[in-house]
């Protein structure tokens, strides 16, 4: 090849090699996909590609939902479930905050608490429901206790690891300005641990929902879990799915509340 003198080759645009690998918002795409899935589902049932007994159409699920809502039974089920999850989550969270904070702040509490929490944390708490029924009776208390136990351990872990995550340099700064212990905890440790604690709330909320349904399926007359189980026993798949829709709505509502809370409490981020 003949050597080409520099400057003689014609100038050409530099090829672009960057871009991509960055999520860009695609507004409405999710909604379109959601509507499409529902539409295909409806079509599949209408065209008898699937038996309605096994998979009822979205329209019949909606109809079943309206029916139980108008009969008043839906509210009864939902309200009982709400009461249980609220009570269980609150009790478990308050106890978890108390224990988690002591473990985060005091070496002795951590030395005692950490092995116990580590040993008990992996037990699926629903396995304890029969025992709790024996101790506390078949009524509300055993179900609430199951949810509380399930919420308690992850809360403890979220709180003390949240406290561990507070930068030591900020605590040293507090000490260097002679802040009293109470002020260091209240003004530095607590707000510093808050992101971790709120992330823990997300986990415990979903655990509480799982335990709620499981407990209601084992022994309850009313509640969304009991409603779904009863519908399944009678092969009322439209009512069964109506119950599932309620659960989904409940989960979404809890998630939305937590997002609001995070945005408000962590607005400095």
């Amino acid at each position: 090849m003949a050597p080409q003198a520099e400057g003689h080759a014609p100038a050409r645009p530099l090829p672009f090699r960057g871009g991509g690998y960055l999520p860009t918002p695609r507004h409405g795409a999710a909604l379109v996909a959601f509507v499409a899935i529902i539409a295909i589902w409806e079509l599949a049932v209408r065209q008898r590609w699937v038996t309605p007994l096994f998979l009822p159409a979205p329209s019949s699920v909606l109809a079943a939902l309206r029916e139980v809502a108008e009969a008043g039974t839906l509210w009864r089920h939902v309200s009982e479930s709400l009461l249980r999850i609220a009570a269980g989550w609150t009790v478990g969270t308050l106890a978890g905050l108390a224990v988690g904070f002591s473990m985060g702040l005091f070496s002795l509490a951590r030395a005692v608490g950490l092995p116990i929490v580590s040993a008990l944390f992996p037990i699926p708490k629903i396995a304890l429901l029969p025992l709790l029924i024996l101790w506390l009776g078949i009524g509300e208390v055993s179900k609430i206790a199951t949810i509380a136990l399930g919420v308690f351990f992850p809360t403890v872990i979220a709180v003390y690891s949240g406290i561990d995550g507070v930068p030591r340099s900020l605590i040293r700064m507090g000490q260097s300005f002679n802040l009293p212990w109470r002020d260091i905890v209240r003004k530095i440790v607590l707000p510093g641990a808050l992101p971790g604690i709120l992330a823990g709330f997300r986990i415990t909320a979903s655990i509480a929902l799982i335990l709620l349904v499981s407990a209601e399926m084992i022994g309850a007359e009313y509640g969304i879990g009991a409603f779904i189980l009863a519908a399944g026993n009678l092969m009322l798949t439209d009512q069964l799915l109506a119950g599932v829709v309620c659960l989904s709505a409940l989960g979404l509502a809890i998630g939305a509340i937590l997002s609001r809370l995070e945005r408000w409490l962590l607005r400095w981020r």
Partner: peptide
């Protein structure tokens, strides 16, 4: 109020407090 007072390399500011709040932290107690 605090005879020996540090200025830190990493600033050691509380991210959840405003500029004013960070200065106030040293005075509040």
């Amino acid at each position: 109020l605090n005879p020996l007072t540090y200025v830190f390399q990493d600033f050691a500011l509380l991210p959840w407090r405003t500029v004013e709040g960070n200065v106030a932290l040293a005075l509040e107690h």
